[in-house]
Design a protein around this nucleic acid. Structure first.
Length: 556
RNA sequence: GCGCUCGUAGCUCAGCUGGAUAGAGCAUCGGACUUCUAAUCCGAGGGUCGCAGGUUCGAAUCCUGCCGGGCGCGCCA
């Protein structure tokens, strides 16, 4: 099959022509795009190449566009219907139905791989996300973090990278002591200390800890010990919740392990920093000179009392990830951590790392909206909406979809009423419904007929001469946009783009379904083309939903 | 006060490494149902892209200032 059949292929042809006409150097000028223009009368694809290269070529933009157009028309032959020069020098391409047919079969021939594996430079990437403190249940903010981190990991993996998902467990330090003290207080029927953990879940937790430690009364009064038991119980439920949410981790990294051994990982990393002269002592504490690397003040690593700060553990954890050989580290953090980015990047450089290899993405807040009113989450224990409650109320699919439909750096309003609605007003149901509808159509067609269509070799794929309906062309083009969407979603760390794309694709299919009957279409070649469209569209919708972690039901 | 971030339709948000008449969903209004799943579809209205300058052939997009919202500024985690 000719490489000119896909959107990407077209771009390659165009670039090759430019190199031939103007020399390789012309391509060094970036920004040349070939994209679906905003209006249909600007053609199927449009390029700004002439605008950008006119100066280099020493000709007027429109004249250069004309040259490119002529050369392209010669190269593409019957696949190009015609081209136009528009505005200041845009080259607009109007592709023939023959091209659309070829492109559709190209999509089908790629099968499961369609849109994936395009990363030009595959990397080993560790994505650390959620990492909720194991001192209480996860709330809606964690749900967003989980949905985002997981979808990002899926997108990056599909794009061609090797991904490890990690959850960093803060199971050391004073908070565990506090948790233990709080549980002990409850077990003994006392009030929870002022600075302890309150909240409804603590009572059930205390009961569970008590049951676990029933046969060792002494162990029930040691805060650190009780805290550790409580953490393991909480972690178990967190893991279960995440499991139900469709989020799985490859590795659970425990902060406590960074403190074990002689010397511990933390001690070792402090040694490295000291050795490179990035630390100093002041007021009895050990400081890291993060200001040398762009932070606005230096940070404490070891407090004057001798305890390590959380920061010190975190540096050790990032060093550990470096030593495990990842090319890139992505941390997905809560909104309240954004002030932490500069110091962590500084520390990473102090370790000898390249700060570009470390990306810290901070998630903005989630507001729940119910009956048009914002249900603010309170930080006060016990009043937040938990991940479990969110799943119970709107289900995993809707929860993930809505949490993922916005960019991670903007606050999101989650409308619980809309999310729960099972109608076309609800985007997630609309997309799933399109998928189920295709499954139904294909079932009506029959697997034997579908198989016959897909197995036909190119010459047997008659129908390439059949003119296409507008809705068919539009659907082919929407399908072809998928690889670029995946590429953008991966490059910009923005899986939310795929929710928008999935909706557009579902809309394109629905328009096609309205205008073009599939089952029994005459002649058989037309039916074959439509079956092919259904198959390609179904698998692309399914792929999109899978990348988002949303199910793609075959019937609804 | 300092730092980061956001400000786009009535609402929630895309678009932001500069491109043509700024998009989607919801809401509103007007239409369509002897269908391959109506859990649907078609159409319409709705915008000084916070404000003001600057850069240029061209700015929602880049730069500066201002206004407004959010978050963070500990030898807490």
């Amino acid at each position: 099959m000719s490489p000119t059949t896909t959107e990407i292929g077209l771009r390659e042809v165009l670039l090759a022509l430019i190199a031939e006409l103007l020399g390789e150097k012309a391509l060094e000028r970036g920004g040349i795009v070939l994209e679906a223009p905003p209006r249909a009368d600007f053609g199927d694809y449009s390029s700004n190449a002439a605008l950008l290269l006119a100066q280099h070529a020493g000709t007027a933009p429109r004249a250069l566009a004309q040259r490119l157009g002529e050369a392209l028309a010669q190269r593409l032959g019957g696949q190009l219907d015609h081209y136009e020069i528009a505005g200041p020098g845009f080259l607009n391409l109007f592709l023939a139905d023959q091209w659309h047919h070829a492109a559709l079969w190209q999509v089908l021939s790629e099968g499961e791989r369609f849109g994936g594996g395009q990363a030009s430079c595959p990397e080993r990437i560790v994505v650390e996300f959620v990492s909720a403190n194991p001192t209480g249940p996860m709330h809606v903010g964690h749900a967003r973090n989980a949905a985002y981190g997981d979808a990002l990991a899926r997108v990056l993996a599909f794009h061609g990278h090797t991904i490890s998902r990690e959850f960093y467990v803060n199971d050391a330090g004073t908070q565990i002591h506090k948790l233990g003290a709080s549980v002990i207080a409850l077990m003994q029927g006392r009030e929870v200390p002022e600075d302890g953990y309150h909240g409804e879940y603590m009572h059930a937790l205390a009961d569970s800890v008590k049951a676990q430690l029933a046969d060792s009364p002494q162990a029930q009064v040691e805060p650190r010990n009780v805290g550790t038991v409580a953490v393991s119980l909480l972690l178990r439920t967190m893991r279960q919740s995440l499991d139900r949410f469709g989020v799985h981790f490859d590795h659970w990294a425990y902060e406590s392990e960074l403190h074990g051994g002689h010397p511990s990982a933390v001690d070792q990393v402090l040694g490295v920093l000291e050795q490179h002269g990035h630390t100093y002592s002041k007021d009895g504490a050990l400081w890291l000179k993060t200001t040398d690397f762009g932070d606005d003040k230096d940070r404490v690593l070891v407090r004057s009392g001798g305890e390590h700060t959380y920061f010190a553990s975190d540096i050790a954890y990032h060093q550990d990830k470096r030593e495990r050989g990842f090319d890139r580290q992505i941390d997905v953090w809560g909104a309240d951590h954004h002030g932490y980015v500069a110091r962590m990047k500084a520390a990473y450089q102090a370790l000898g790392g390249d700060s570009d290899e470390l990306e810290m993405l901070t998630m903005q807040l989630v507001h729940l909206v119910r009956s048009g009113e914002r249900a603010q989450m309170s930080k006060r224990a016990g009043e937040f909406v938990t991940l479990e409650e969110l799943i119970a109320e709107i289900g995993v699919d809707a929860a993930r979809w809505f949490l993922l439909s916005r960019s991670h750096d903007t606050t999101v309003d989650l409308d619980l009423d809309l999310a729960r609605e099972q109608s076309s007003d609800n985007p997630v149901y609309y997309v799933q419904y399109a998928h189920a509808r295709i499954a139904s159509v294909l079932q009506k067609v029959g697997s034997e007929r579908v198989g016959r269509t897909l197995e036909a070799t190119p010459p047997g794929r008659a129908g390439a001469e059949q003119p296409l309906e507008a809705a068919e062309r539009a659907l082919v083009k929407k399908l072809l946009a998928f690889p670029a969407e995946v590429g953008e979603a991966a490059a910009r760390r923005g899986p939310h783009r795929l929710t928008a794309y999935a909706l557009e694709l579902a809309q394109a299919f629905t328009a096609f379904y309205r205008d073009c009957r599939v089952v029994g279409a005459e002649p058989a070649t037309v039916e074959s083309t439509r079956i092919a469209l259904c198959v390609a569209c179904q698998s692309t919708i399914a792929r999109c939903l899978d990348l988002l972690g949303v199910s793609a039901p075959r019937e609804m």
